[in-house]
Design a protein around this nucleic acid. Sequence first.
DNA 1: CTAGGGTTAG
Length: 531
Amino acid sequence: MVSGNLARKLALLLHPSLSQSLTAFSNIAELKQVHAHIITSGLAHDIFTNIRLIAFAAISESGDLHYAKSLFDHIEHPTLFMYNSMIRGFSQSNRPHESVKLYTRLLNAQISPDKFTFPFLFRSCSISSLLVPGQQLHAHISKFGIDSDVFVVNNMISMYCSCGELGNAWKLFEENRRIVDVVSWTALVTGYSNSGRVDVARQFFDNMPFRNSVSWNAMIAGYAQRGKIVEARKLFDDMPERSVASWSTMISGYSQCGMCSEALDLFGEMVGFGIRPNEPALVSAVSACAQLRALEQGVWLHGYVEEQRFEVNVTLGTALVDMYGKCGSIDKAFQVFNEMPEKNVLSWNTMIAGLALNGCGKQALTLFWRMQVMGPAPNDITFINVLTGCSHSGLVVEGRHVFYLMTQEFKIIPQLEHYGCMVDLFGRAGLIKEALDFVNDMPVQPHPALWGALVGACRIHGNVELGEELGKHLVELEPHHSGRYALLSNIFAAAKKWDDMAVVRKLFKERWVLKNPGNSVVETRSQVATN
DNA sequence: CTAGGGTTAG
């Protein structure tokens, strides 16, 4: 960096307006360079300079919270502004709990918090559902006399909503009737929607004395997430002004309830109107392609993302990996995955799932080992995906080892899905006895689907006796599941036990027709044949 | 001296 440039950056960092100051650098390396200059030129003891350094590192998008914390820790008596900047920084990090710790430090240093301290503290409590600290902070609000600041109150309302304390949120709202604004109303709409009480949310929405597009979006999202997509669409059509978020809310609503062509149509309409989509809209459209296995449209979207120079962040990158994986373009999936600058556990899981789905069990395992070395800690989903890969590729020894690793090393308690993978792993490999032993050793009640997988394995590998026994058991366990009859019937067919097969079909017909009076016999037959 | 909240994503 030439010195003129350095001076310009320094001047911008120390600009009176903080928002100007936050544009000073495009990355943390530039900040560190200016920081070095600050030290050599004796500015390092100037409080204001330090304030700006910390604020930039903690708050700016191109900042570095870790670096901010180390600057902060080297200051003997940090100012309230420094505390507030750090609390804000941690509230938008992956360790929001740290901001509560900083608040404790602030109190220990005999500093009185102000109205800028609390909104971000409550935000941290919201993200991590920290109800008890949230309640304690609520008590401090009155103690420090800042209980009638609408920003503080609104963040408290959100905090209670996130912790499932709707009654407290509403009480707080009522107590502050004189100061509540459109944000407070919208927070309640969101809170009640997220708790599944979308009808109550609608009442708040209808009673709002003022609305803006965010309030409409909140209500649309509330409906869409409860599957009430018609109501959501009606609001979308009726709203006076749609923001980009309105479009992406509606598109993601369609995508999430499986109405994928509607999602893609609306995305097309949006682009057709000349509206530049945002990342959530792109992610939802890519996800719709994944669900539809629509490779061609997915490729088009990927091209659009590159051509329009959208940043491929973790979420968008993962959505693309998922799309390519589900559409069978595993090389393309791997390419996007490898090019992602930042990956989280979901990105790794998605890539492993793609490999597993495409029968690349060995590669799924290799990626899993690479994840141990250079990736995030695996979670229960990671193991479902790895085990699926093993079972699809007949990697019995490896699968057994991975299961051992999961329970013994990672201390992850196996869910039904994990057991299902193991039964599938043994069953597909024809190791019926191992599968049976495994099911019998399970500490939880086996789900009918597990027996189903076993009976399927018996049929494929000609283990008629066990198949018969388990199949009968399964039919009695789930007398209204048509697939169970089909399986048992197929077992008998494989053993050429035509009489037994006829009995099963008759039994099925009676029970099925009884429960589904609208079905004709022809349909019933086709059900048996195809299931 | 500076500053903040409610909507949308894999």
